[in-house]
C-alpha cells in the first residue's frame, strides 16, 4: 500500500514537473540590429529574436545537430524553406513589412522559434 502511495505522489510530481518544465518556460528575447547567428542544436538558440520593421535582417542558421528533424528550417510568413547543411552557415535575409510575432520551425514542425517584429 505504501508503495502505491509513493508511486502516486512521485507520479503526480513528475506530471507537474513535466508541465512546468516544457510548457511554462519563458523564452529570452534577443534584440537584433543587422544580423544574428542562430545555432541549430536541439532547438534554436537564440529562439526568440526581435527585429525592426522594414529593415533587412540577416538570420544566419548554423546547424550543429545531426538530427535530421532539424535539417530544414521553415519561415512560413516569409515563404522560406531552407535546407541546412551540417556545420555550415546558411543566411536567410528577411525584410518584415508588418509588426507582430512570426513563428518559424523545423521541417517537421517539432522545434520552434519566434521572430518578433517591432
Amino acid at each position: 500500500m505504501v508503495d502505491k502511495i509513493i508511486v502516486t505522489i512521485i507520479g503526480a510530481a513528475a506530471i507537474m514537473f513535466t508541465y512546468w518544465f516544457f510548457l511554462m518556460k519563458k523564452d529570452k528575447e534577443v534584440l537584433v540590429s543587422d544580423s544574428v547567428d542562430i545555432v541549430v542544436e536541439g532547438g534554436y538558440s537564440p529562439n526568440v529574436v526581435s527585429i525592426s520593421k522594414g529593415k533587412t535582417t540577416k538570420l544566419n542558421f548554423i546547424r550543429k545537430d545531426q538530427n535530421t528533424c532539424l535539417e530544414e528550417v521553415v519561415l512560413p510568413d516569409f515563404k522560406v524553406r531552407k535546407y541546412l547543411p551540417l556545420n555550415q552557415k546558411v543566411t536567410i535575409e528577411i525584410t518584415p513589412q508588418k509588426n507582430g510575432e512570426f513563428k518559424y520551425s523545423c521541417g517537421m514542425n517539432m522545434f520552434h522559434g519566434k521572430i518578433i517584429v517591432r
Partner: peptide, 19 residues
C-alpha cells in the same frame, strides 16, 4: 545514440520531440 544526443540537446532548450 542519436536519440540520446537529440534528447539531451532538446532538454537544454526545455523542449522535447520524438527522440
Amino acid at each position: 545514440w542519436g536519440f540520446y544526443r537529440a534528447t539531451v540537446l532538446t532538454l537544454k532548450h526545455r523542449t522535447a520531440n520524438m527522440d
